[in-house]
Design a protein around this nucleic acid. Structure first.
Lengths: 135, 135, 135, 135
DNA sequence: TTTT
DNA sequence: TTTT
């Protein structure tokens, strides 16, 4: 049955990359999606949506995307439950990303120079070439 | 920023209709969306997604849709927090439905006769006329 | 970059199954999607959208889905051009289906009995089991 | 019935703003959406999708968005037919935009100074404030 | 050149 | 616990 999500927003933090016991990479982050309408106080709020990315794409995201980066995501909603430290069942709703597209030029500072001494900007120029990244 | 969801699934229960202090109608229900792939045990699981519907559409849903009904929903993901009885902050992720489309003919039994003695089927015949309902 | 479509509608005809020179199966059909709003004359119109399905899914669709069947589709918009008989360039916009979900029980009449003498209904009972079809 | 589209791409030209006989504003443009996969020759192609925007949003788009601008669009697919100069019926498939979100800082040059002598950048600074535009 |  |  149909289960589809499309989001455009900004990461609230640098994503965390982990590896499962079997070596599968996973990345988690929160996406802030600003609402288009304002609330009663005239403020524009945001929705904070938890995102999970798997495998190769998880590594790409962890490497090239940081706090404040703007991304477009498509995926599906997943509901999951787990037991917390107090042995209480907790229910989680999150988005499993199937595609992550890079929409701007904010990149992690640590990556600005690679192993050949090329700056990040040389490799991935900022003039609209964002879509040439390996996402 | 973009925040869109599209789902097709079945209600796990009859929806609950409530009215806010100011008279605004709200309906809540859980949608079971079967996954298209199977898990390691060869079973097909489902995601259980909380849906909120507002206003006139809430009343329509509460009236015509019941446990087991198949619906198509489009809307947006909303994150919300509240304080529970133990004064702990709880975080909720749910889908606010903007459109609810009726896809089958399972309707609430209690509605099969209206105040004029007409059966539900007379008013809303099942032969494909589902889309003529006021949704 | 993001390119996503989700549709629920009915086939205007039985789908046509073809095989490319290399053996790849393709199916084409038109989906009628009723609009939710009415036009100035109070009539509800429909959009007629051309759908292309590839590979195994094309064969499933051609086998189990017919004129009038209700389906949910997710996919992407594709633009294509070709030269017609008069050597004029024609531009086509269509939806390439990535998923096709079966939403009702209208099936092709010719398939109601299989090679073991079982009726189609025996194999695929209509009580909500539509999702067990191989789509 | 469900009919939803979400796109992220770049305008191939400056949009054209027209006004219908009754004064309703309409804007048309083509959106280039790069494909994520490459073709047999290892090239990444694009889909060129015709977009229609109505009313206030049409005026905003025509004013602030230009050739090369990156936008996120949500809307629906529309099929339409008309008679061309040769009295032949032509069929058109296009996307009617319901939301247009501004994703970058490429703006039309002509608008860089307003009637109070403020440059466009003063009014709409480029540092992430794109979402404060009246879209 | 259309579905229910 | 939140981004621009």
């Amino acid at each position: 049955m149909l289960n589809k999500v499309q989001l455009v927003g900004r990461l609230t933090k640098d994503p965390e990359l982990k590896y499962l016991g079997n070596g599968t990479p996973v990345t988690n982050f929160t996406l802030a999606v600003n609402r288009t309408f304002k609330n009663k106080n005239g403020e524009r709020e945001a929705d904070f949506i938890n995102i999970v990315v798997w495998r190769k794409q998880a590594e790409n995201v962890a490497q090239y995307v940081g706090k404040g980066s703007q991304v477009a995501i498509s995926g599906r909603i997943q509901s999951r439950s787990y037991e917390n430290a107090d042995e209480q069942r907790r229910y989680v709703t999150e988005v499993v990303a199937e595609e992550v597209h890079f929409l701007d030029s904010k990149r992690k500072k640590e990556n600005y120079t690679d192993e050949h001494g090329n700056s990040f900007q040389d490799l991935y120029p900022l003039d609209g070439g964002e879509d040439d990244l390996p996402f």
